[in-house]
């Protein structure tokens, strides 16, 4: 069985050096990047960023590679796929540019080439080309502080929970990504509540695609019951009009 891969980012260990940011830029040929990398935001050419919050806490933002991804579910042409290792990938050739993925993503990740007349969506690929050859992601390889770890998802989950258990004073007692919207392949540890670091705090634990599934499941019933009802009504009302017409003619004859 293929082992699911994942990334663990520990904000308590991050020193805010920006190596992951530049390594990601180089790996994806996304240009030089900003000299003051802390001011950069996620964009079509920045798949990951480092952000600074109060008390010199640094955190990364990147695609969370959901277990049951919203983007995969909503894309009308199936341009997004969840690969066997865990990365969520996008195919620009299929895309028609409806941007439902951007609208629906619970983590606000997909970015668009707004200035192009042949635009595609851009986001982190968890270095799919590298990890399928057994390498680690560029950001994990570049991190000098071991704040970003790449590895088997199940192992990373254990490491994350162990760290909180070993040092409950340092960590906020929650691993972001264990449950959020059905769970993600990117796990985050933080010293403060996750809302303070700009992570969505109001996500349900249920995978979001379930919400539409419930509505879509009703379609066969609407079609079958609806057609039969309408057909029946047509026949009934037609017959009723016919009888009314016949009665009228009879009355005319009698008169």
């Amino acid at each position: 069985m293929i082992k699911q891969k994942g990334i663990l980012f520990d904000a308590t260990m991050c020193v805010g050096c920006g190596e992951c940011y530049y390594a990601c830029k180089a790996q994806n040929e996304n240009g030089e990047g900003k000299e003051d990398f802390l001011t950069d935001h996620l964009s079509y050419k920045s798949y990951t960023v480092v952000e600074e919050y109060e008390d010199e806490i640094y955190t990364r933002k990147m695609c969370m590679h959901c277990v049951d991804p919203t983007c995969v579910s909503v894309c009308p042409v199936g341009a997004f796929t969840k690969t066997e290792f865990g990365p969520v990938l996008y195919d620009g050739d299929k895309c028609m540019g409806c941007r439902y993925c951007m609208q629906a993503c619970p983590h606000n990740i997909p970015r668009y080439e707004w200035q192009s007349n042949n635009p595609v969506v851009q986001k982190c690929t968890m270095c799919h080309d590298r990890i399928k050859n057994g390498e680690m992601t560029a950001c994990a390889e570049a991190c000098p502080a071991e704040a970003t770890l790449f590895g088997d998802l199940e192992e990373l989950k254990e490491i994350a929970l162990q760290r909180i258990a070993d040092d409950p004073d340092t960590y906020y007692p929650h691993v972001y990504g264990l449950e959020e919207a059905g769970g993600t392949h990117v796990l985050i540890l933080s010293p403060v509540p996750f809302e303070q670091l700009g992570f969505a705090g109001n996500l349900p634990n249920e995978p979001l695609p379930e919400l539409t599934k419930r509505a879509l499941d009703k379609i066969p019933h609407v079609v079958s019951v609806g057609s039969v009802f309408l057909g029946g009504m047509y026949w009934l009302t037609k017959r009723k009009n016919q009888i009314a017409e016949e009665n009228r003619m009879k009355e005319d004859e009698n008169a």
Binding site: V72, S73, V74, C75, P76, V77, G78, A79, K94, C95, M96, G97, C98, R99, Y100, Y112, N118, P119, V120, P209, T212, K213, A215, L216, I219
Partner: peptide, 22 residues
């Protein structure tokens, strides 16, 4: 649509879990 010339894609590229596909 960002790529309006791909508007016909739902004809052959199916994703029945998508409301927009429907």
């Amino acid at each position: 649509l960002g790529k309006p010339y791909n508007i016909w894609h739902p004809l052959i590229m199916w994703n029945p879990s998508s409301v927009m596909f429907e």
